[in-house]
Write a protein that binds this DNA or RNA. Sequence first.
DNA 1: CGGAGACCTGCGGATTTCGCAGGAATGCGC
DNA 2: GCGCATTCCTGCGAAATCCGCAGGTCTCCG
Lengths: 172, 172
Amino acid sequence: MHSEAVASRSAEHRDSRESRNGSSPNLDAVSLAIIEQLQEDGRRPYAAIGKAVGLSEAAVRQRVQKLLDQGVMQIVAVTDPLTVGFRRQAMVGVNVEGDVESIAEALTEMAEVEYVVMTAGSFDILAEIVCEDDDHLLDVINKRIRKLPGVRSTESFVYLKLKKQTYMWGTR
Amino acid sequence: MHSEAVASRSAEHRDSRESRNGSSPNLDAVSLAIIEQLQEDGRRPYAAIGKAVGLSEAAVRQRVQKLLDQGVMQIVAVTDPLTVGFRRQAMVGVNVEGDVESIAEALTEMAEVEYVVMTAGSFDILAEIVCEDDDHLLDVINKRIRKLPGVRSTESFVYLKLKKQTYMWGTR
DNA sequence: CGGAGACCTGCGGATTTCGCAGGAATGCGC
DNA sequence: GCGCATTCCTGCGAAATCCGCAGGTCTCCG
């Protein structure tokens, strides 16, 4: 699959998609295709990606570098911390009174917090935390998160078993 | 940082850590250090990693390949789907009656579901889903997830803004 | 029209990856 | 203890990849 090159440069310039995403200005179909390739294999050679998306090796390399610099994507090793061993992990739902953004910011700064997202629903924020052990987990939740001014309440979901973890939204 | 080589092979063989993680048999301190390196940069050259962890280039390459084959880690590009554009994302808490594992399995098989974890707390399962738009999201939740036999109830948290996303549990 | 900016290609040279042939340490059965 | 299989490491040459740079095209704009 993915053998065909993507539409020509001039064509995608009028693509309806990219005019729609106001948050990230420069992100056309070719960059999307490149990300897709790297979602399958983060170490895939630039030349191979170039062949798949219809670009030269150098062009792909420049685009990838730019995407990394801009923070649009990151190429990293991901694991299941529980599998890797000796750790406790949990999702914490947080309810906030006052400024949600500033609480989210505070959570972001904690090293044990790996994932923070603001949500609509019965929680204002969801935060995933990774800890050494139960004591550490308890400490982070009770002594750090619940002590933040503006945090009304929290609810924890301790991870028992990770069943799936993919990053393949592109390949569907 | 991370300039020092790790303990010698013979020493870590008696390390208390690895005797503790029954789930993943062969995963010593050196492999952990390798993963750590790749969490910082998934494309870091094997030679550089080798220098950091005290191994030859070839040895690192063999270890990394093994870790990938075993499914202990994956090297991939990760993005914020919301930033990449035109999508709706949500976390769904699921309550199950009967076999939780089989429901989790069913969720795992859905393409829109990127993340499935079994939890302790007021949800049995948390699942993250990525969709094209609101219609698609509604469809997945109401027509697919809630129709699974054994699903008692669900609660959704639509993502508004992703604030943090890291994979650096190793580097603390 | 001329210049700035964004982006692509092509091309060498440095670097990295890859496969393979040993060698050292370990565990096991006899 | 000894032989043997297994595992994991190192070293090395060939092939592939990465990297920086010079130059070309296209667009936008004063």
